[in-house]
Nucleic acid binder design. Sequence first.
DNA 1: CTGTTAGCGCATTCAC
DNA 2: GTGAATGCGCTAACAG
Lengths: 320, 320
Amino acid sequence: MANIKDIAKKAGVSVTTVSRVLNNHPYVSEDKREAVLRVMEEFNYQRNINAVHLSKGETLLIGVVVPFTNHPYFGQLVEGIANEAMKNNYKLVLFQTNYEEDREIEALKMLQHKQIDSLIICSRICEWDVINQFTEYGPIVLCEDARNRNVSSTFIDHYMSFSNALEYLHNKGHQKIGYCIGRKTGANSRQRGKAYADFLKRIDEPYKEEFIFYECLHFEHGEEVVQRLSNMDNPPSALLVTNDFAAAGIVTSCRENGIHIPDDLAIMGFDNQPIAKIMHITTLEIPLVQMGRQLLLQAIDGKKHTHQEISVKLIERQTV
Amino acid sequence: MANIKDIAKKAGVSVTTVSRVLNNHPYVSEDKREAVLRVMEEFNYQRNINAVHLSKGETLLIGVVVPFTNHPYFGQLVEGIANEAMKNNYKLVLFQTNYEEDREIEALKMLQHKQIDSLIICSRICEWDVINQFTEYGPIVLCEDARNRNVSSTFIDHYMSFSNALEYLHNKGHQKIGYCIGRKTGANSRQRGKAYADFLKRIDEPYKEEFIFYECLHFEHGEEVVQRLSNMDNPPSALLVTNDFAAAGIVTSCRENGIHIPDDLAIMGFDNQPIAKIMHITTLEIPLVQMGRQLLLQAIDGKKHTHQEISVKLIERQTV
DNA sequence: CTGTTAGCGCATTCAC
DNA sequence: GTGAATGCGCTAACAG
């Protein structure tokens, strides 16, 4: 494949001139520019991007770390990131980690190695001291409250929104409230757990481990929750479900088992995915696509660290 | 940041030797290797991957073209691709195209520009003549029957499987059968459309445009289908739904509208996603994760063009 | 085993 | 306006 030197020779100019027309530099006479263009056409010239990267030290590639690609929460987030990336002429390198720390470190190392310009971490398992080792190599953006940290972030105040949701259920007359969540640890999960514990104290209810359901990620996990619920002597009367698909699964499973919603069990979802609307699920809207957009913009504009709090909205429907 | 030359100088060896220890080349004496390693440690040396790419002409990056990331079909496919990529030390560059041809061309151009080693196209809008212009630049792998083409492919015989599904419904006593699908065009959709038309001819039924429902991609689209169904004087008695989530949406919507399944309406899904199991939906299993794996392997091993047909399996449950 | 050297393809400084 | 020269950081003949 022809390179810049071949073009230069054939067009009777220097490589510099060729480089200039390549980069739309003004200092090049019209006739030479045309000559170069003509030869490029003739040779079907394609510039070698890797050489450009080496020379400029940037790649227009942004890394995106997600635990799973095949999950509606991260699906929407990545959708937002991808749309904004497209607009800004960036491409994405996807890291599906399955919450394995090594995968996350691989991503961080690509940042260090300048194979990506910046890194968006949508959810992580690694500790802060790991991330801190890499902040010097390029912008890192988190999807969690990271205000006092050396990175940028876009986040929801999960403590607040979870508290409000619990309060809402309480005001509706519920005293025994449980919740379903993806995982035990993780910054966002911890915030929610704390909100839950504090709420119980406030209303003077005992903390019951069995009211918390982990690994609630997909529609199909709703079945297991209802199963466990059915076996309880004293089940909760309301459930906060941090994912609308899991909530939909619970609602569906309840129907099959003759559990009436919201009378026997109130369900409150999260995210306001389309499925929540169809199934009339009361939910807390989280603008994931918009958050994705924001994350990407912060990744591009990584010189200064910024922090964006996104607010949520309660959507009242028929499951509470 | 220190480079290979700095290391060489400090360690008192040549850059070649440094390069050798970097690449685990055997021809290095143990003491020099250790010396180099020590200096690397001391300088916290990180090799510049872009320089490696430029020098070697490969990037260990594989492009993946999908119309939407946030869709369970492509979610599973990408999951399979990502897992296998991880195993083989490749990373993925994700192209979310929304079925815009320009986005697909961008991906193809990255192949041409050697920014990715090969390209997996999970679904496309562009014509073959576009793809053909890029086959010389690197391996291209399609997720559709591309046997007589200049690429590799992993695919389902959609004509056959659709025919069989229709036959199955017919044997169950259904004469008026419709289907729901993502889009009108597209290689796989066309195969299915042809199977449908041929089937109707075989059983001597008229082709009714209103029995075909397009844009059936997500759970929420089930509602619209049921809506339209309710307004029909002479609705189909069975529906083939090329996506389990859409099928689940239809089932859910039918319940709300007092349409009994399978008596009033039989539903047959596709993919065998977990949701199909929970909702007892009869479906045609398509091993998407496995297909993703295969696609990636073909992308890596792109010297020769190979073609893998994947077979589907009927899963009988309660909606037919 | 080891080092010298010539690329890889492009960007950019500096002198003309 | 233009081009020669140098550098980006690494790999891989080739010669020793």
